[in-house]
Computed example of a mutant assay.
Amino acid sequence: MEQSTYHKPVMTAEVGEYLINNPSGIIIDCTLGGGGHSAYLLERYPSLRVIGIDADEEATGEAARNLERFANRVQIIRENFKNIAAVCSALNIRAVNGILADLGVSSRQLDDIERGFGFLSPRLDMRMDKRLGADAEHIVNTMGETELANLFYTLGGEFFSRPIARAIVRARERRRITSGQELAETVQKVKYRKGKIHPATKVFQALRIAVNTELDNLTNLLNDAPALLASGGRMVILSYHSLEDRIVKNNFRSLAHEGIYRLLTKKVVPPSENEISENPRSRSAKLRAVEKNVSL
Rank of each mutant, 00 (worst) to 15 (best):
G118I: 03
L120E: 09
P122W: 05
R123N: 04
R123K: 06
R123S: 08
L124S: 04
D125Q: 08
D125I: 11
M128T: 05
M128E: 11
D129K: 13
K130D: 14
K130E: 12
K130S: 12
G133W: 14
A134L: 09
D135G: 06
D135R: 14
E137R: 14
H138L: 14
H138M: 12
H138G: 02
V140I: 08
V140Q: 01
N141F: 12
T142W: 15
M143L: 13
G144A: 02
E145K: 04
T146A: 15
T146E: 14
E147M: 11
E147P: 08
E147H: 13
L148G: 03
L148H: 02
L148Q: 03
A149W: 09
N150K: 13
L151H: 00
L151S: 00
L151V: 00
Y153K: 07
T154N: 12
G156D: 08
G156W: 08
G156Y: 09
G157I: 02
F160V: 13
S161E: 11
R162P: 08
R162G: 15
P163T: 12
P163G: 04
I164D: 05
A165S: 12
R166S: 14
R166L: 11
R166D: 09
I168M: 08
V169E: 03
V169D: 05
R170Q: 15
A171L: 00
R172I: 04
E173N: 06
E173V: 05
R174E: 14
R174L: 14
R175A: 01
R175L: 03
I177D: 02
S179P: 03
S179E: 01
S179L: 05
G180Y: 02
Q181C: 15
E182I: 00
E182P: 03
E182W: 03
T186Q: 14
V187N: 04
Q188L: 00
Y192D: 02
H198N: 12
P199H: 15
P199K: 06
T201N: 03
K202S: 02
K202Q: 02
K202W: 04
V203R: 08
V203M: 11
F204K: 05
Q205E: 02
A206I: 03
L207V: 07
I209T: 10
V211R: 05
N212T: 01
E214H: 06
N217H: 10
L218G: 12
L218S: 12
T219V: 15
T219L: 14
L221R: 03
L221V: 04
L222Y: 00
L222T: 09
A225E: 04
A225F: 09
A225M: 07
A225W: 09
P226I: 15
A227Y: 07
L228V: 07
L229P: 07
L229R: 11
A230V: 09
G233W: 02
R234M: 01
M235Y: 02
V236S: 01
V236A: 04
I237C: 04
S239L: 13
S239V: 08
S239Y: 06
Y240T: 05
H241L: 05
L243D: 07
E244F: 00
D245V: 00
D245E: 01
I247K: 13
K249D: 12
N250L: 11
N251A: 06
N251F: 03
